[in-house]
């Protein structure tokens, strides 16, 4: 190939390389400020429930339908709060909990609701003040279904279909 073509290709390649960087800059510029989303659009999405329990057992579609799917706070500061169960909820005051309880008697990671083969279970995660199902303090993972009352600190919760 002639020298001139080689030079042209060389400079052309470098120009494209820098054009890529300019494009990147432009994407960053248009991405600087987020977009405002009305909060109402987000209701369908669980607050931070992207991660279901790691060892979620596979249940048949039918069995899943019969399970409760909402956790409702009935007493306490956050009474009325509803949360989809979706395979598991971590309850506590740490930011990685799906249900962040505003309650002085709740530990950082207090309790966990998990989906097992027989339905939902509650498990205490070594909390200070304990986790209670129907006023029985938990010592082991305990089944938890509609009709049971879960108490953590001064907050009462039930599950509903």
């Amino acid at each position: 190939m002639s020298e001139l073509v080689v030079l042209g290709l060389k400079l052309g390649f470098l120009a494209l390389l820098w054009l890529f960087i300019l494009f990147t800059g432009n994407v960053i510029r248009t991405d600087l400020f987020g977009r405002k989303v009305p909060a109402a659009e987000l209701v369908a999405q669980p607050a931070s429930g992207a991660a279901p329990a790691p060892n979620q057992p596979r249940l048949s579609r039918r069995a899943l339908k019969q399970l409760p799917h909402t956790l409702t706070v009935t007493h306490g500061k956050q009474a009325g709060l509803q949360l989809p169960l979706e395979g598991g909820v971590l309850i506590g005051r740490s930011s990685d909990c799906q249900l962040l309880l505003d309650d002085d008697y709740v530990s950082t990671r207090h309790a966990r609701i998990t989906l097992s083969a027989g339905g939902y279970q509650v498990e205490d995660l070594g909390s200070t003040n304990g986790t209670f199902v129907n006023n029985q303090r938990l010592t082991q993972p305990t089944p938890f279904g509609p009709g049971d009352t879960l108490r953590i600190g001064r907050t009462l919760m039930i599950v509903e279909k």
């Binding site: 990147t24 994407v27 987020g34 977009r35 405002k36 909060a39």
Partner: peptide
């Protein structure tokens, strides 16, 4: 009332990805 989020911009990613691969192959 409002929360701040970011656009998905997957189309931008696809375009830039094609550009990047084209440069490597170039």
């Amino acid at each position: 009332s409002d929360v701040v989020g970011y656009r998905r911009r997957r189309g931008v990613e696809a375009f830039m990805l094609i550009f990047a691969i084209a440069l490597g192959l170039g």
